[in-house]
Amino acid sequence: MLSEQSTATVRATLPAVGGALGTITERFYAGLFAAHPELLRDLFNRGNQAAGTQRQALAGSVAAFATHLLEHPGQRPDAMLRRIAHKHASLGVAPEQYAVVHEHLFAAIAEVLGDAVTPEVAAAWDEVYWLMANALIAVEQRLREERGGHTWRTWEVVERVAETEDVATFRLRPADGGPVREFLAGQYVSVRVALADGARQKRQYSLSGVPGPGLRQISVKRVRESGAPAGEVSNHLHAHVRVGDVLELSEPYGDLVLDAASDTPLLLASAGIGVTPMTAMLAHLADSGHRAPVTVVHGDRSPAAHALRADHQAYAGKLPDAAVHFWYEHDAPADAHSGLVDLTGVAVAPGTHAYLCGPLPFMRAVRTQLIAKGVAPADVHYEVFGPDLWLAGQD
């Protein structure tokens, strides 16, 4: 891992570098996009760039990786790397792009820290960067090879369903009529669309169910935030994509997948559009004959805003030992709870593995309650839509 000399230098400079990472990443992206505008147009999420969340995620991942190297010199943070690698592989990030990132990132470090970046400091952080980059390149290459190489495939929309006012489900089949690879419940695909300004933006959407042999299904929430480019892809899909239209999809990726024996109790907790991977997981559990207890938890604004609500209930109803708990802020029916998700009265079986998807405040609150109920922190798994700000020191 990190050499002895570089370890001492990184340990001494981590507070200064870590404290400046926000400014460094801001300068980095400005320089990167000035030199390579095609990356902002066709690779990076323009909404996340405008909001600054991608900068936070990058700073957090670099700091987390460096800290791990210092605190656990004999280990590699594979969980963090695997999560990033899945996202990169689904977007089609190429190995040679890491050299481009290195050039502009280290130019930003030198610009922000000035004379503090001695040759020794630069060499130590260069070692940190390439340890992380080469590990990601290797994992991403393996992921692509497992899927026959990264290619974009054209899919035809065969059905569109209005789940709620703001969520639409698109069912798709390959336009070439070829076979469809199986996916693991909880995974997502990248969708690439051509926008009016010529950009080919990509977004990742969970596979929200099992619609039938040879089909894929995604459920897309329209982001109504004002000001471009927030929600530009979701609004494009809602406004322009109908039955008979085509979309470009990647193969399925993602590491939030069910990995439990048939006798393992499970808890699937979601909020809002975080329901999408959970419905796929429930469908898988029902099809595979899962017999251990399954606790289903979901929070939403109202029953009318609860996308895939019928599927959520139906799949859970097929399980022999399932308990369903829904919370609604408004218009809660008699069989649901009013307000925000609160696990105080929810029984959690010993040895439960929990899977969470939803806004970060929701997942932090649920995780805290689960740990208080005796669930091991290592058995609480999560999925974040967009840049992983949990890694950015927000936990």
Rank of each mutant, 00 (worst) to 15 (best):
residue 187 Q to C: 02
residue 185 A to Y: 04
residue 191 V to I: 13
residue 181 R to H: 07
residue 171 R to D: 13
residue 178 G to W: 10
residue 190 S to I: 01
residue 163 E to S: 10
residue 191 V to P: 03
residue 189 V to R: 05
residue 164 T to V: 04
residue 172 L to R: 01
residue 178 G to S: 10
residue 164 T to A: 04
residue 194 A to D: 12
residue 184 L to V: 09
residue 169 T to V: 11
residue 173 R to G: 00
residue 177 G to C: 11
residue 181 R to G: 06
residue 165 E to M: 10
residue 188 Y to S: 03
residue 168 A to L: 15
residue 166 D to V: 14
residue 167 V to W: 09
residue 168 A to H: 15
residue 162 A to Q: 15
residue 163 E to W: 08
residue 186 G to Q: 01
residue 184 L to F: 06
residue 171 R to Y: 09
residue 181 R to W: 00
residue 176 D to Q: 06
residue 185 A to L: 02
residue 190 S to K: 02
residue 179 P to C: 05
residue 180 V to T: 07
residue 173 R to T: 15
residue 183 F to P: 05
residue 187 Q to M: 07
residue 175 A to R: 13
residue 162 A to T: 05
residue 174 P to T: 11
residue 163 E to N: 09
residue 172 L to D: 07
residue 191 V to K: 08
residue 168 A to V: 15
residue 179 P to Q: 02
residue 167 V to K: 08
residue 188 Y to R: 04
residue 163 E to Q: 10
residue 193 V to K: 01
residue 170 F to K: 11
residue 193 V to I: 04
residue 182 E to D: 15
residue 164 T to R: 05
residue 170 F to A: 08
residue 192 R to Q: 13
residue 190 S to Q: 03
residue 178 G to K: 10
residue 190 S to V: 02
residue 187 Q to E: 07
residue 178 G to A: 12
residue 180 V to Q: 03
residue 183 F to D: 13
residue 172 L to F: 06
residue 174 P to H: 11
residue 187 Q to H: 06
residue 185 A to N: 00
residue 176 D to T: 13
residue 177 G to Q: 09
residue 190 S to R: 06
residue 188 Y to L: 04
residue 190 S to H: 03
residue 165 E to W: 05
residue 178 G to R: 08
residue 168 A to M: 14
residue 162 A to F: 06
residue 165 E to P: 01
residue 187 Q to L: 10
residue 179 P to E: 13
residue 190 S to E: 01
residue 163 E to K: 13
residue 183 F to R: 09
residue 179 P to I: 05
residue 192 R to F: 06
residue 194 A to P: 02
residue 177 G to T: 10
residue 175 A to T: 15
residue 188 Y to Q: 11
residue 173 R to W: 05
residue 192 R to G: 03
residue 187 Q to W: 04
residue 183 F to V: 07
residue 188 Y to D: 03
residue 183 F to H: 14
residue 171 R to H: 11
residue 190 S to M: 06
residue 170 F to T: 05
residue 181 R to Y: 00
residue 166 D to I: 14
residue 171 R to E: 15
residue 178 G to L: 06
residue 163 E to M: 10
residue 187 Q to S: 06
residue 182 E to Y: 00
residue 167 V to G: 03
residue 188 Y to C: 10
residue 169 T to L: 12
residue 178 G to I: 03
residue 192 R to W: 00
residue 186 G to M: 05
